[in-house]
Design a protein around this nucleic acid. Structure first.
Lengths: 367, 367
DNA sequence: AAAAATTATGCAATCGATTGCATTGTTTGA
DNA sequence: TCAAACAATGCAATCGATTGCATAATTTTT
């Protein structure tokens, strides 16, 4: 630790006050009871607006509680009632635009409905994912939202949760075989439409840079691509799996060029591999989009800012978060109501920009 | 809700299994006690490795606990002991690259040390910030990390926390007058060095696009800029406050051009205002960096991807998160140890790229 | 005016884990 | 051999809020 300090930063100890950070003991309903010459039961009931408590008393209690800054101890409360007010979310990584927007949306709903949200990262690792779930269970969250890691090729850990009766909502990357609620994008449709768009622009040799197809989203994008190209005659196409990083996108397309294969359109399952492809194209001095059109996936912020701006697919991240949270809270609060898994499918939006606008068509119109 | 559904997405109810989501009752130490013909006390002590319990019994208990899948109820536990295992974090917005990296770093440390992390957004609003703090307090978190909102121009809500003895760590945007631990960037130094860099490149008419100066980070960047330009003769400079958005950056610089003021360098307190400035410059067909050099602040992902790539300042977001979490946990676990506020200052890193490389110098070397 | 119904509150148990103190063996020491 | 020391466990109270079941006080009904 110290040598690290030495290299990267320094510490200053400011000498201001001294007695800080001694947690004060909080006021309890018993304290209130004593003050008002009543019992804890009465206080509790008054604060919970119990019908059997007189209006007068309620007023009195509320006023006093306010006055002395009483706060209900949620820990004690949830021990007694068995109901908690925190939810959990497991994501591969927080620091990605898509995910952080999902979280932002979920957090807003949670806040509005009086829940707190605990976030865990699986860091794209199955074991960490298991661990995160254990941690959340341990913290006694009332329900869990999860988007599985890229390495999660099994469902058992989630099945365990289901057996234990933990309310569960999957989103984005899901295990479709599980009987849980889920909130997803219509990846098939998005890929289909994007492909159709490229075909409409006159492209006839398409390459799809896909991801690992055991992950539902990549599989669906792939299917959408295939179905779209299959509907048209005289289309040549190729699919490259597991090419979702910038490096991989660069490499794959570079190799194609080297063996003299020049597709006139690329649909990537990730903005980053699209970017990699774009860089090769630029190096080769190909005109984008006229010689090669490029479409990414995810609408990362950079796609609108680079040159040429990149057509991409907006995944409604914020809405996914909102819906996942709503669904989860609904399940938590009405354990018996929704017995059948609900699936919410959002329609992603194709953001057409310069990298695919060959015809004198519409370009990015700021939403 | 329904018309919204109609527009944007549809729902499918899949009809798979029926009985899902009935929380099973968990096993308690009392259950274990019954099974092993012991008391709850013994079980508790055995699991906590109490010295007065025989090795034999401990083994027995552990094995049985494992076997039946017992998990300690943290709610009950923390009610009794008064110690919790969750920490809270309040940030302006989650869906920003800087913030989400801070969270990622903090989450990792929390996980490693056995804590959960509750995240709240203030959405750049003072009232929401207050609310978030209330919520966290209510959830009985053991400590709080906070980066204040842009509208927070008072300290009282934080002072209240301090008085109540809640362990507090401020980071990035802070109220420096408060006696709390904090983790920040050396914004002064970063701005100073960036300015110096521009001067070294031969620039002599510099504009600083600053933010609202009552926020510490902008004030310090401003001071760094001023001090750097002041050390050199024959430098002309201007400072524009509250110009941190892309739109504002665009507008401000455009206006300057219109009245025929052509700075040869811009140091922005935000990558977005720098981008706005860059767009104007491009429209005016100015050569970047030769006619106008541009430096942003925050090293947003897009800065490396646009053309020309933008020099910016990396803020060590992940490390800030890690350090804030470490500091907080240390405070929480040793309430009496650190009585004096500690300040950790990280040194940001100037990422020199094309937008400011006039001389045949070094450009971005991938970290 | 007594019985019945209603209203407002108190009592005490409970949620699950923890912990100071008491209790039961068992061992050591003199 | 008996007290003292020790080891291993049990008992019961506690953390703070909730809640079913009294109980007391007041009002209504007959």
């Amino acid at each position: 630790m110290h040598n690290f300090f030495y290299f990267c930063y320094y510490i200053i100890i400011t000498q201001l006050e001294t007695r800080i950070f001694d947690m004060k003991k909080k006021i309890t309903i018993h304290d209130l009871a004593k003050m008002l010459n009543m019992t804890a039961s009465t206080i509790s009931r008054a604060l919970n607006d119990h019908p059997k408590i007189s209006q007068e008393t309620k007023e009195l209690v509320r006023k006093k509680a306010e006055e002395v800054g009483y706060k209900r101890n949620l820990i004690a409360s949830s021990l007694r009632t068995g109901k908690g007010t925190t939810l959990g979310m497991v994501v591969p990584r927080i620091n990605r635009d898509f995910i952080s927007n999902v979280i932002a949306g979920a957090e807003r709903i949670c806040r509005e409905k009086g829940y707190s949200l605990i976030i865990c990262q699986s860091e794209e690792d199955l074991e960490r994912e298991r661990e995160a779930l254990r941690t959340l269970l341990h913290s006694r969250v009332s329900g869990i939202m999860i988007s599985i890691s890229a390495k999660t090729n099994t469902s058992e850990h989630l099945e365990t949760l289901i057996k234990e009766g933990v309310p569960l909502v999957q989103f984005d990357r899901i295990r479709p075989e599980l009987p849980t609620h889920c909130v997803v994008n219509d990846n098939y449709r998005a890929a289909y439409e994007a492909t159709q768009h490229l075909i409409d622009q006159g492209c006839r040799y398409l390459v799809h840079l896909s991801g690992p197809r055991y992950i539902n989203i990549y599989e669906e994008r792939c299917r959408g691509f295939i179905d779209a190209v299959s509907r048209v005659q005289n289309i040549r196409y190729e699919i490259v799996e597991s090419a979702i990083t910038r490096e991989k996108g660069y490499e794959v397309i570079k190799q194609m060029f080297e063996i003299n294969r020049y597709p006139d359109a690329i649909l990537a399952a990730s903005d980053y591999s699209a970017l990699g492809a774009m860089l090769v194209a630029k190096e080769k001095r190909l005109m984008i989009p006229h010689q090669i059109a490029i479409v990414g996936f995810a609408n990362e912020p950079f796609t609108a800012l680079i040159n040429p701006s990149m057509t991409s697919i907006d995944q409604k991240a914020y809405e996914i978060g909102e819906n996942a949270a709503k669904l989860l809270i609904d399940t938590v609060e009405n354990p018996s109501k929704i017995k059948k898994p609900t699936k919410i499918v959002l329609i992603p939006q194709l953001m057409i920009r310069e990298s695919s606008t060959i015809q004198n068509g519409l370009s990015d119109k700021k939403n």
